[in-house]
Amino acid sequence: MKKRRILGGSALLLIFVAAFAMGFKVETEHNLDKGYQVGDKAADFSLKNVDGAMVSLSDFDGARGFLVIFTCNTCPYAQAYEDRIIALDAKYKPQGVPVIAINPNDPSVKPGDGFAKMKERAAEKGFIFPYLFDEGQKVYPKYGATRTPHVFLLEKTATGNMVKYIGAIDDNYQDASQVDETFVENAVDAMLAGNEINPKTTKAIGCGIK
Rank of each mutant, 00 (worst) to 15 (best):
I6K: 11
K119A: 13
P199W: 03
Y81R: 08
Y81H: 12
Q178G: 06
K91S: 12
F152G: 04
N186P: 01
P111L: 07
I85H: 01
I86Y: 00
T159P: 00
K125S: 13
A123W: 03
F152E: 02
A122G: 12
F152I: 06
R121F: 04
R5S: 12
R147P: 12
I6D: 07
P149G: 09
L12W: 08
K34P: 00
Y36T: 02
V68A: 07
T157F: 00
D83V: 02
Y173G: 03
M22V: 11
Y165L: 04
G8K: 06
R5D: 14
P104G: 10
D180N: 15
C72A: 07
G65Y: 03
N49T: 05
P107G: 10
R4E: 15
M1S: 15
H150K: 07
R64L: 05
V17S: 06
R121I: 01
S177F: 07
D33Q: 15
I128A: 15
M54W: 03
K117H: 13
S56Y: 05
E82I: 05
A145E: 10
V17W: 03
F127K: 10
S108Q: 14
F20G: 13
I169E: 06
D170C: 09
L153E: 08
N198F: 08
A122C: 10
M54N: 14
D44G: 09
A53D: 14
C75A: 07
T74V: 09
V26H: 10
S58G: 04
G126H: 11
I205C: 00
M22N: 09
D180M: 08
A42G: 04
V139R: 04
A19N: 04
K25P: 00
A176N: 11
F16C: 14
N186A: 13
E135A: 15
G52L: 05
A42F: 02
A101I: 05
A18M: 13
I197N: 06
F20S: 10
E155Q: 15
T159A: 01
I69M: 09
V184T: 10
K91P: 05
P98L: 10
K117P: 00
F115L: 09
F133D: 08
D175R: 02
Y140P: 09
N172Q: 07
F24P: 00
T148N: 12
L57W: 01
E27N: 12
V99G: 02
A90M: 04
K2W: 13
F24C: 00
Y92N: 05
Y36M: 06
D171H: 04
K200L: 02
F20C: 08
A63E: 00
D89T: 08
A145P: 09
L47D: 09
Q95N: 06
F127I: 12
A21W: 06
R121W: 05
P130D: 00
I128E: 14
V17C: 11
P199E: 04
N73T: 03
P141V: 08
G206R: 01
I166A: 03
G62N: 14
N49S: 09
I169P: 06
C207Y: 03
E27C: 00
R64H: 06
V109A: 14
L32R: 15
G206Q: 03
K41Y: 01
G206E: 03
V109H: 10
K156D: 01
V38E: 06
D171F: 02
D59F: 03
I85T: 05
E185V: 12
K142R: 15
V38K: 06
I128C: 07
K203T: 14
F24V: 06
L132F: 10
K3R: 14
S46G: 08
N195W: 00
